[in-house]
Every structure is written in C-alpha cells, then in structure tokens.
Design a protein around this nucleic acid. Structure first.
Length: 267
DNA sequence: ATGGCCATCGCGGATGGA
C-alpha cells in the first residue's frame, strides 16, 4: 500500500493536477496541505468521482489540510488536542492496514495517519518563529500519547524544517536561516526521539533530493531546493516500509505547486 | 542587490510563503 503527502499551495488552483496525479499514482492515503480554502469549497465530489473519500480541515486564505483515501478515515481529529491553535494545520485519521506477512492474527491492523502543515516561522526571532517552536512542542506532547494508543503511526506533511545540510541546496547561504536553525532541528530530532524514523533515509536516494524549489530564479531547473516535506514512521510500522520516493514529475507542470509529492510504500 | 515568483484578496498593492 501507498501513503503520500503533497503541499499543493491552493486546492482551487491545483485540483486538476491533484486528480491527474492520483489517476497516474493511485494511493491509499494522500495528505494535502495548504488548501487555502474554507470547508464549504472543498471538492469532495470530484474526489468521490475519482474513487476517493475525503475529509478536510480548511480556513479562508491560508493553511488548510485534508486526507484523501480509498477507505474512509475513522476517528478523525482536527488540529492538536491540548494545543490551542486558530490555524488549520493538522488532520488525523485511522485507516485499515494490510497486515505484514507472518503477522499474528491479533496484530493491530490499523494505522494512524497524521497529516500536518507545520508553521513556516518566517524568520528566527520573530513572533511567528516563537509560535513555530511552541507548535512543535505541542505536537510532540500530543504525539507521545498518540503513539501509545496507535503504535502504528505515520506523521507526514510539510514540516518546514530540514534535518541537516544534505537537505539544503545552499547550506552556507541558509546557515541559521528559517528551516535550518538549530532550534527547529532540535524539535525535529525530538520528534525522532519519540520513536519515529525518517523514511526517506531508510533507502538509497539520489544526492541533492529536495521536495521544494523556489518559484524564483529557475529554482527547479537549477535544483535550488530544500527537503522540507517528510514522512516519519513509528517503530511498529517501520518493518513494513519498503520504499520512499519524491515524485518530481508534477513540479514540471504548468502552474505547479512549489512542493513535490512524497510517497511511502508499505509491504 | 534592498530582488527575482506565486496565491490571496480584490482591483492596488500588501501579506505570507519558504
């Protein structure tokens, strides 16, 4: 089975591209970020016609997240329980999981999928940066308990954080800049310390693999990008992970999102 | 180079993104 994430930077603009991509790349769950529309404008019918269920958590103009899936999402939760937030950044659901071969009959056959649009943070030291760090701490506190109730968990989305210099086209130029500060990377590694693994680095990957490229200055053509969209898997799910890849294809579309989809495969 | 692009709101140009 396959689980994917894609920051589509406006569903209004990108809906045809999302439907085209799903037709060419069927997945069990697709987490979307930056819908930039209210729930009443979400295209449930278009996804239904394509064979997908959908749940969304939108708001006007900014943010907004959704889960598109073959099986309907169960136990849907919006945003981070225990962390007050006016912005629509997180949507979680439980989905059936094909059992690993040889798994005992009593093995948990569901997985928890947490789709998230992490705050950008704008600039180190800004109010938005402080909000980003507080949000990350709120996410971590909630995930610690969520992992107890749902051992098989995937946290995926636009993290707006790079792990290290390998995720950045210009590490010197981006040193201590937003997405690359020690504070952000500390929080990202604190998520890892909960027992999560970066699926991308479980497998050989091309060097300079990025998930986002600036619209300006021919960023994509010159591969001036960063890897900021991640799929983290829990320890209980990790043995089933068989591949993780970034699909750069739609970044060459007309009017592309600045982000590429990232796809996880489970055996 | 103090920027370059894109989306939103809304009809000019500010704001946010990354």
């Amino acid at each position: 089975m396959k689980i994917a994430t894609w920051n589509i930077n406006s569903l209004t603009v990108r809906l045809p591209q999302v439907l085209d991509w799903l037709a060419a790349n069927p997945v069990d769950v697709l987490a979307l970020q930056e819908l930039k529309l209210t729930d009443d404008k979400f295209a449930h019918a278009a996804f239904k016609n394509a064979g997908y269920e959908s749940v969304c958590f939108g708001q006007k103009t900014y943010n907004g997240v959704a889960l598109i899936s073959k099986s309907p999402a169960q136990q849907v939760v919006r945003n981070i329980p225990g962390f007050d937030d006016d912005l629509a950044r997180v949507i979680s659901g439980t989905f059936p999981l094909e059992p690993a071969s040889g798994a005992a009959a009593d093995t948990d056959q569901t997985m928890r999928v947490v789709g998230a649009y992490f705050p950008n943070g704008q600039a180190p030291g800004s109010d938005k940066f402080e909000y980003k760090l507080a949000w990350l701490q709120g996410l971590r506190a909630w995930l610690r308990t969520e992992l107890v109730s749902h051992p098989k968990l995937v946290l995926l989305g636009d993290y707006n954080i790079t792990f290290d210099d390998a995720d950045v086209w210009d590490p010197e130029g981006m040193r201590d800049q937003i997405h690359c500060t020690d504070e952000e990377r500390y929080e990202l590694n604190a998520l890892i310390a909960l027992g999560l693994t970066d699926a991308h680095r479980l497998f050989p990957q091309a060097s300079k693999s990025y998930s986002w490229w600036d619209y300006r200055d021919f960023g994509f053509r010159r591969n001036h990008g960063m890897r900021i969209d991640h799929i983290l898997v829990s320890q209980a799910l990790k043995p089933q992970v068989s591949a993780c890849r970034i699909d750069k294809t739609p970044r060459s579309n007309e009017r592309p999102s600045d982000h590429a989809p990232v796809v996880l495969e489970l055996s």
